[in-house]
């Protein structure tokens, strides 16, 4: 179920993405660590989009699978695309701007990670994290 689309054109929009995902994660009673991981991953990806593609959009959606609920964020840009994907996903890689750790780090922080890219057309990255309301009551570990 789509919740919101945030357009990312400036640094301030990266903060807006963080705030939006924080609010939805709280709303779905994500535990603190899962929320922090997801928001941090989203922050890295929104920042990448701004740095390498000049901006893009983030679609935030709620997922449901049996007893589990999930929060998904899809980062879509019309930038140059990623030529060497293995390298871009490897840890510590940074092609410029000293950002680094972006893609590989973001992937490690979430449950699901998908990436589609075409050189000259753009890149779409989706991340999602899941939560079982019964197994992790709000405030629990």
């Amino acid at each position: 179920m789509p919740l919101e689309t945030v357009s990312v054109d400036t640094e301030r929009d990266v903060s807006r993405v963080r705030r939006a995902i924080t609010a939805y994660a709280d709303n779905l009673s994500f535990d603190l660590l899962a929320r922090t991981h997801l928001v941090t991953a989203a922050s890295e990806l929104a920042r990448n989009m701004l740095a390498y593609a000049g901006g893009g959009s983030v679609r935030i959606a709620k997922l449901r699978h049996e007893a589990r609920v999930g929060l998904k964020a899809t980062f879509e840009d019309q930038g140059p695309g990623i030529e060497n994907l293995d390298e871009a996903l490897s840890d510590g890689f940074s092609s410029s701007l000293g950002l680094g750790l972006g893609l590989g780090g973001a992937r490690r922080l979430v449950d699901d990670f998908e990436l589609e890219t075409a050189v000259g057309e753009g890149t779409t990255v989706s991340i999602a994290s899941w939560h079982e309301p019964d197994r992790h009551p709000p405030g629990g570990p």
Partner: peptide, 14 residues
Amino acid sequence: MRPAVAMTLVELGL
């Protein structure tokens, strides 16, 4: 630093 932030930084290798 909040514990969740510290754990996230470790995951990121920072």
